[in-house]
């Protein structure tokens, strides 16, 4: 008997779910309090020599190796303007990958050939190659705030080829990764109107570096932003719509 009652309940829930999904059919992206309807108004894609910040590289290695497997990471890239500041950039991160010594190797040879050149060394380095790098710049306006709330996204696409010459289980993998930085502000990107600054991936997930909840509350109370309904709690709807290829 309890089973039959459950099935009746499920049928009713199915019907209510249909109503609910129809009533919420419009795709919206929300922050923790406000509901945004991001409209892409500007998009530009530029090929770049090297990634600005090795977020994807750090994330991929940490995901594969939870503990330190080497004391050297060789980053095979076309050296770019930020290359000299790699150690400074790494100082913002934690974990064994960031603590390990990174060396920039110009991509004159393939990662496999570079890895093979260390065959006779006792301690083998981890080789990470980044190529096919593109920078995507996108600007979104929030239609729910009469286009006063704006989001600027810097997304970085890269192809990563990683090789580690472990004696027992050598590893060679390829990943197509995207990292991004997002700045959300109200009208002007100046102190006092910045709502949030976030980035992806840090430890494999989106990380919020700065959030001004008081500003969001103020804008919501003045009806400058649309309040997020309690029922809209999709955890994947926090960021921005997919960027064009």
């Amino acid at each position: 008997m309890p089973h039959i009652m459950n099935y009746k309940k499920i049928n009713i829930i199915l019907l209510i779910t249909v109503f609910y999904v129809i009533s919420c059919a419009q795709v919206s992206y929300s922050c923790s309090l406000a509901l945004h309807d991001w409209q892409l108004i500007f998009f530009y894609k530029i090929p770049i020599n090297a990634p600005f910040i090795p977020l994807s590289e750090i994330s991929v290695i940490q995901n594969k190796f939870s503990k330190a497997v080497t004391d050297r990471i060789l980053w095979v890239i076309k050296p770019g303007i930020l290359s000299p500041y790699l150690d400074f950039i790494k100082s913002f991160f934690s974990g064994w990958v960031a603590d390990t010594k990174w060396e920039i190797i110009p991509n004159s040879k393939s990662v496999i050939k570079i890895a093979r050149s260390f065959s006779n060394e006792e301690k083998k380095p981890l080789i990470v190659g980044s190529d096919k790098n593109f920078l995507k710049i996108a600007v979104f306006f929030d239609a729910n705030s009469k286009n006063n709330c704006c989001q600027i996204v810097l997304a970085q696409d890269s192809r990563l080829r990683c090789v580690f010459q472990d004696a027992n289980s050598p590893w060679a993998q390829e990943f197509n990764m995207q990292s991004w930085y997002s700045l959300i502000f109200y009208r002007m990107p100046i102190p006092g109107t910045i709502i949030s600054f976030s980035t992806y991936p840090i430890d494999g997930t989106r990380s919020s570096i700065y959030e001004d909840h008081d500003l969001v509350e103020l804008l919501l109370s003045k009806k400058c932003l649309m309040r997020r309904p309690d029922l809209v709690v999709d955890p994947y709807s926090f960021d921005f719509p997919d960027l064009p290829e």
């Binding site: 393939s110 496999i112 890895a115 093979r116 080829r161 090789v163 010459q165 050598p170 590893w171 060679a172």
Partner: peptide, 21 residues
């Protein structure tokens, strides 16, 4: 199979790297 392939590529020259990847 992945370990075997990676080992093979690191021990000797591979003919076609594109095919490997």
């Amino acid at each position: 199979e992945e370990i075997k392939r990676a080992k093979g590529s690191l021990e000797a020259d591979i003919q076609n790297e594109d095919s490997f990847w």
